[in-house]
Design a protein around this nucleic acid. Structure first.
Length: 636
RNA sequence: GCCCACAUAGCUCAGUCGGUAGAGCAUUUCCAUGGUAAGGAAAAGGUCACCAGUUCGAUUCUGGUUGUGGGCUCCA
């Protein structure tokens, strides 16, 4: 007799001869349909397994992350089965569940025939058929040599290789469903009928084990949901994301462009430039309020500096170089070395610390051509960077201040759901364990004191110190990684940074690198998509468009423009020879916050007919009233 | 950088089975003088990304270059 404890503390008795399906059918009938697999004492099993231990039992359904993984992993198997039915010569390789990318799962196959996007509907159909066939999924444990032999006999040479590489002592399991079998750790859903609706979302090339020297594989990405409605909802979300694509909106609203002459180097048009400047001004203002000093360091600095900073050793492939007067220079890929040179221009006292040096620094990084992507991934960008020099004792307070600063800024943009991660010591790292532990604890304590929960990204810290990463969720639920706070014990050493402490002796300060928006370019791209180009008034490049009903109001329109300019309101006038309906349409498509329509009546009485973007009604008010309303809205 | 796809007017896209191209929108001009999501007409606008090759002839076929898009870590 086994005793299983559910997450809510309820206990069930089970016979050793029973399977987990039996247990669920007997004790938890409401879960019979939804159950995909079980987790017993932290380990996941198929429902068809017999109960062989007492302990904690969790029934995995699509509602949990782990349940989704099982669902998607089984979906990948169905994809593979469909591929094998249509392309019997295809050889299977890997078919994992993924966290980011164009699908929830993919399957990499080796096949000489090219599969094209046009072939995907046929595969989807076959997958749907496999679900309707309700094939039971069974698990078998194999002995290594037998498994290799069998997969080789099936022509699955990649699978045979994978099996050969499985570490000694690990169980080799094979899952079968109908005419299909695949090597897999599992667990899987009990029956292909437990799966739902599929959509194959992308097809691309990949390499065996990600190495370009290896054979080229074809990768098919897919998504799946138990419910057709959920699938439709997700496809709608993808459509929505397409509508919000910052590259498209950037062109439509005349914000920025890219030119062949500068791949990866954005050109800001006037309106994009205003947005950029507004972001910068906001960050400057906030930095000043929080006791930061602003500096500006050169774009190009001599090679020796980059040797000293370690960038030549660690970052060279991403840097641009130049030779001037027979001396080597590098264009800065980061701002920290320049900031350190400023630090060293005078003897610093402990009374100067913490010294918070901010820089809106434009850096250049040579990214691989294939990864460039609108404003999200560029080769030249401006960071809202800052370097805080402080004593070890001040570290935690400074980190806490930086956290508060960061979350305040995100909230200003309506990013209310913020997730934080701590990236810990990587394998290759500088500094003693003790120092790392202290720094990591400093980060954890600061987060805890702010009442923030955090995830751990094991081994993902920088080589010179641990970091906090901030993630935000945008208006359509997508996650973006934005700022980081990093503790650095290495650069102060390399640059021999010092301050005179109370004891009259020289000490080494600790350095914190922090960026909130990260890259202004990327951040701008994110808020374009987040707001769908409908920026809040305070940051909008154009806040009001003046629309004349007839050309007779042109003079009044120009007068209003001047008045608005003086009042600090960004406006433009549409005095074109078009009907008002046409102008309203244009104004709407430009997503400008307000329209003021002026006809003969308004011009006569110094009034405006005000209409807000997204609203149908307009309201006639005096110019003064309009200005004071806008000013108070801008002030927030 | 690698793989696949794409590159035709400012934008979105047709088209040419090899005989140098077209629409809608935008632009300009004219008419209409208008009240909250497209009034009408006309004109102008292209070395069909770039460089070679094949051909009597290439925007079209072939190769290369550049740029753009989707991928290229997830692990049986």
């Amino acid at each position: 007799m086994m005793v299983l404890t559910l997450p809510d503390g309820k206990q069930l008795n089970a016979e050793a001869s029973q399977t987990y399906s039996d247990v669920i059918a007997q004790h938890l009938p409401f879960l019979t349909k939804k159950a995909l697999a079980v987790k017993v004492n932290g380990e996941e099993f198929d429902l068809s397994r017999t109960v062989d231990q007492s302990g904690n039992l969790e029934v995995l359904t699509f509602d949990s992350e782990e349940g989704k993984e099982v669902f998607w992993h089984s979906s990948a198997h169905v994809l593979a089965q469909a591929i094998k039915r249509i392309y019997p010569r295809a050889e299977l390789t890997f078919g994992p569940v993924i966290k980011n990318g164009p699908g929830f799962f993919y399957y990499d196959i080796y096949l000489e025939d090219k599969i094209s996007e046009d072939d995907l509907p046929r595969l989807e159909e076959e997958m749907q058929k496999i679900v309707q066939e309700k094939l039971p999924v069974s698990r078998e444990v194999y002995e290594r040599s037998k498994a290799i032999e069998e997969f080789k006999a099936m022509g699955e040479n990649f699978k045979a290789q994978i099996i050969a590489e499985i570490p000694e002592g690990q169980t080799i399991s094979v899952y079968k469903q109908g005419d299909f079998q695949d090597l897999c750790r599992g667990p899987h859903v009990p029956n292909t009928g437990s799966l739902g609706h599929f959509k194959l979302t992308a097809i691309s090339g990949a390499y065996w084990k990600g190495d370009t020297a290896n054979p080229q594989l074809q990768r098919i990405y897919g998504i799946s949901f138990p419910d057709k409605k959920q699938l439709t909802a997700h496809l709608d979300l993808l459509e929505e994301a397409k509508r919000r694509d910052h590259r498209k909106i950037g062109r439509e609203l005349d914000l920025f462009s890219f030119q062949e002459e500068g791949p990866g180097f954005p050109f800001y048009h006037n309106k994009g430039s205003i947005l950029f400047n507004n972001l910068s001004a906001y960050i400057r203002e906030q930095c000043t309020l929080r006791g930061y000093e602003e500096i500006r360091t050169p774009i190009m600095l001599s090679d020796e500096l980059w040797v000293r900073s370690g960038h030549m050793a660690n970052f060279k492939e991403n840097m641009y170089f130049s030779t001037v007067d027979n001396r080597g220079f590098a264009i800065k890929p980061m701002n920290c070395p320049g900031s350190n040179l400023v630090y060293k221009t005078k003897m610093r006292s402990y009374r100067d610390l913490p010294l918070r040096q901010a820089e809106l620094g434009t850096v250049h990084r040579h990214e691989l051509s294939g990864v460039l992507h609108g404003l999200f991934r560029v080769r030249s960008f401006t960071q809202d960077d800052a370097h805080i020099y402080c004593t070890a004792e001040q570290l935690e307070d400074e980190i806490q201040g930086a956290i508060e600063f960061t979350t305040d800024v995100y909230k200003k943009f309506g990013f209310n759901e913020i997730n934080t991660f701590i990236a810990t010591r990587p394998e290759k790292a500088m500094g003693s364990d003790e120092v790392w532990e202290k720094a990591t604890n400093g980060l954890i304590n600061a987060l805890t004191r702010k009442g923030l929960t955090y995830g751990i990204k094991e081994g993902e810290g920088a080589f010179y110190g641990p970091k906090i990463e901030f993630n935000v969720k945008d208006s359509i639920g997508r996650n973006w990684q934005l700022g980081t706070i990093q503790v650095d014990f290495s650069l102060p050493d390399r640059f021999e940074l010092e301050y005179i402490a109370e004891d009259g002796k020289k000490h080494r300060p600790v350095m914190i690198h922090r960026a909130i928006l990260g890259s202004l370019e990327r951040f701008l791209g994110i808020i374009i998509e987040h707001y769908e180009g409908k920026f809040p008034l305070w940051i909008a490049p154009v806040q009001v468009r003046i629309l004349t009903v007839t050309p007779a109001q042109e003079a009044y329109a120009q007068e209003l423009k001047k008045i608005f300019l003086k009042a600090g309101i960004r406006s433009e006038a549409d005095t074109s020879n078009e009907k008002i309906g046409y102008k309203i349409r244009e104004w709407t498509s430009q997503k400008i916050n307000y329209a003021v329509v002026i006809g003969a009546k308004e011009a006569e009485e110094s009034k405006v007919a005000l209409r807000k973007l997204g609203e149908q009604e307009s309201e006639t008010i005096s110019v003064d009233e309009f200005i004071s309303r806008l000013q108070s809205e801008i002030a927030g």
